[in-house]
């Protein structure tokens, strides 16, 4: 492994940048409370980010695992629309994916 001082410096760099990004909107909010664009972004971007994360996750699924991934996704979505229980959707969806992956 690399020198611990370098790793610590790298970690502190990541810490600082991440904290700046997380704190930035609260500083901005005080100044731009009236901005319509900001309110639009606040309302729509969280869902947009979730969509990006989902696409990013599914992007790298190899073709051989596309079937199980689709089955897991369908189970998660279907269960969530039906029962609205996040825990149930996550566990059952993962179980379906693992079963499909190991049985096919």
């Amino acid at each position: 492994m690399p020198d611990w001082r370098y790793v610590l410096a790298g970690l502190l760099t990541m810490f600082a940048v991440t904290l700046l990004l997380r704190a930035a909107p609260f500083v901005l909010l005080g100044r731009l409370r009236e901005s319509g664009l900001l309110r639009f972004l606040a309302a729509t971007m969280p869902a947009g980010v979730m969509v990006i994360l989902t696409v990013y996750t599914l992007r790298d699924v190899p073709l051989a695992e596309a079937g199980p991934a689709a089955a897991g996704l369908a189970a998660t979505l279907g269960l969530h629309l039906w029962r609205r229980n996040a825990l149930l959707s996550i566990v059952a969806g993962t179980a379906v994916y693992m079963l499909a992956l190991n049985l096919t």
């Binding site: 990004l21 969280p46 947009g48």
Partner: peptide
């Protein structure tokens, strides 16, 4: 981590 900017809003 740029996405985190949108969470704070």
């Amino acid at each position: 981590n740029f996405r985190h900017v949108f969470y704070g809003l």
